[in-house]
Each structure stands twice: as C-alpha cells, then as structure tokens.
Design a protein around this nucleic acid. Structure first.
Lengths: 99, 99
DNA sequence: TATTATTACTTTGAATTACAAAGTACTTCT
DNA sequence: AGAAGTACTTTGTAATTCAAAGTAATAATA
C-alpha cells in the first residue's frame, strides 16, 4: 500500500479554497460578491483565501467596472488549472486505491 | 450555481484524517505502526487524529496482540463508512459540477 | 449637498488546529 | 539489567482560520 495522500496539494486542504477553485474552473470569471454568496463566507475571509491563491499564482484578479460600479473578477491561471487538476487526480487515485 | 462545498464533511478537511479513512476503507483493520508508516506522521500526531475520528465515532480501536506483543488496530465504523462515502460523493458532485 | 450604501478590501485579535518533541507505562528482547 | 518497541499523553509552539471592525473609493438616494 502506498501513501494515499502524498500527492494532495496542501493549498487545497481548505474547503473554502477548494470551493473558490471549483467555481473558477466552471466559469471563466467570477466576481467577488458572487463568490461570497456562493461559498457563504464573510468578505474578509474570502479576500484572504483569494490572496493565498493569488500568492500561489493559482488565481488572477481583474479589476473592472459594470457600468460605473467597480467589479473585481477572479479567474484561474494556467498554473492554477494545472495544480487543481493534479489535485483532483490525486483525489481520484486515493478513491480508486480504495477499490 | 450552488455552493460546491456545503456537503463536504469538515472532519475530512484534514489530509491526515482523509488518509487514515482511505486506508481503513480498503483494509478491514490497520495497526498503528502501519498507519504511521503509510501516512508519514509522528506517532503523537497520528494518535491525536485517530482520537478525533474516534470521538466522532468514525473509527473503532481494537487492542490485541501479535504473539505476545501489543497490537492496536483500527477499523472504520458503519457511521464512519457512511460519512466517508457521503464526503466522497460530495467531492464527486463538486468535480462533476465543473463539467 | 449630505448621507447612506456598496464594493473590495486590510487589519486586528481571538479561537481553533496542527504539529513536533518529550515523557510515560508496559512489555519484550538481548 | 538494559535497550528497544508500542501506543499513547502531555506540553508548548506555530500555523491557520475566522469574524468583526475599519477603510477608501465611488454611487445612489433624499
């Protein structure tokens, strides 16, 4: 038997970061408030998890406008997509290893 | 879009507890040292994560012997199996939600 | 024009969690 | 007798997580 968790990415241990990534994998971009609504976190908390993802270059920020209102949207980077897919792969292997 | 993480079990956010559960799902029972080897944790750390799982009634302890040596083995409970399967289900739904 | 609201944060502080290391009790092997 | 193994518990620290409050900029409302 081999270590079932060695290929899991520590960044994605956090359910909130998992949720963010999974939302960003589906949609080309998602704005701050929609993410907040979706994942049910406080804005401060969301901002700090997004920051962690940004620091790891898994997520990009795009500051824009809807009409005249500020609208910050987030999107996964290539690296983020790759890392997340690898994590899912590791999860699948862990589950498969369970026959 | 619905919250992708609401059905994830918080107990299984921890990679180590995930690893323990996944090892116990495959094998009817696994002893302390094999788990330690497999998951690569210190014994104190392993013991405390096992305790968390025991407290949640996801895991049972069986104290026995191999010859004359003490041998403590761990096994998933019915409840643990159910909870873990539900968690995996939630993960799968999260991934599937990603098309 | 004043004020209230909204967006997207940052900062602060507290609580929780995780971890390694050391200590313990019991047994077994040499 | 002494060393080693098993399965812990305890201790202390570090890291993580979180809510709440504060902030700055703009926009909507009265």
């Amino acid at each position: 038997m081999k270590n079932p968790i060695e290929n899991l990415n520590k960044i994605f241990d956090s359910r909130i970061r998992l949720g963010i990534m999974s939302a960003l994998m589906v949609n080309d971009e998602v704005n701050f408030n929609d993410l907040k609504e979706l994942i049910q976190v406080t804005d401060g908390n969301l901002a700090s998890h997004l920051k962690t993802l940004e620091e790891n270059a898994y997520v990009d920020v795009k500051k824009g406008f809807i009409g005249r209102k500020t609208n910050t949207t987030y999107a996964v980077t290539k690296a983020g997509e790759k890392a997340f897919k690898a994590h899912l792969q590791a999860l699948e292997e862990m589950i498969k290893g369970m026959g």
